[in-house]
């Protein structure tokens, strides 16, 4: 039982550590934040998941992009993640009107929860934990000038955290499971603009709209050869703005 409590404590600590993701701390916000977290914890996790998802098109002269978001997910919440993008069609490859087409895939896991769960599992075979986030989609990109590309596409996105505590002591009032899950298909459109002729330096912005939940996710980011930084915006989220940092490799 103590280990089950410790598992719940890890999840609570996960939430608490995530609170440092936001930058809009004000005393007057505490009540609102607490209420929102209790009201819809899955939405907060989904926003962190959305920090991991990326829609930036593969650079014109490259074919594959691998990206990982290390703040606010890998650090401090131990949410490791990888985002893959593969170019399947090049811009103006066959005829001038053909756009670039990228396939997107993303997967992530919260290591702290997994480790705590394995600890619990070793002593209690009835408790099961699963947590993951994933996304896949297709993006279409077209260069509209030497320095500017426009892109749009569809992306299915899902986050899930399920803790089955396996209470079988016939206590009707006992918590038997914690299940947090959110998913939607997003229509995304955005713009990328080159800031420098000499070195890779870009600004990009996108807005995604959940077709089922009407959820809005948005990003303004700056990126160089490998490093990315910027802000994610979740208008109805627990924290409206998430500062993020990420790293990518282009091949």
């Amino acid at each position: 039982m103590i280990k089950k409590i410790s598992l719940i404590a890890v999840i609570v600590l996960f939430y608490a550590s995530s609170l440092y993701c936001g930058d809009d701390f004000l005393t007057s916000e505490v009540t609102r934040i607490s209420t929102k977290l209790i009201d819809n914890p899955a939405d907060f996790l989904f926003n962190l998941h959305s920090d991991n998802v990326d829609f930036t098109p593969v650079p014109k002269d490259k074919n594959v992009t691998i990206r990982t978001n290390f703040y606010p997910t890998t650090f401090p919440t131990t949410w490791v993640n990888l985002n893959f993008k593969v170019k399947v069609l090049s811009d103006s490859g066959y005829t001038p009107w053909i756009p670039q087409v990228d396939l997107i895939g993303q997967y992530g896991k919260v290591m702290a929860i997994d480790m705590a769960a394995s600890d619990v599992d070793s002593s209690s075979s009835s408790t099961k934990v699963s947590n993951s986030d994933m996304a896949y989609g297709l993006m279409v990109t077209k260069a509209v000038s030497e320095t500017t590309r426009l892109f749009f596409g569809l992306c299915y996105s899902k986050m899930e955290l399920i803790v089955d505590l396996g209470n079988n002591d016939n206590d009707d009032n006992a918590v038997s499971s914690i299940s947090l899950s959110a998913n939607d298909t997003f229509f995304v459109s955005g713009i990328e603009n080159s800031l420098s002729d000499d070195k890779p330096s870009y600004v990009k912005a996108h807005l995604g709209y959940g077709l089922r939940t009407k959820k809005i996710v948005s990003r303004i980011g700056w990126y160089s050869n490998h490093f990315e930084t910027g802000f994610n915006f979740y208008p109805e989220g627990l924290f409206v703005m998430h500062y993020f940092m990420a790293w990518h490799w282009n091949f």
Binding site: S28, E29, S189, F233, V240, M241
Partner: peptide
């Protein structure tokens, strides 16, 4: 009370 405000247009 004070409110954080976000307006987004696409």
């Amino acid at each position: 009370t004070p409110e954080f405000t976000l307006c987004l247009a696409n």
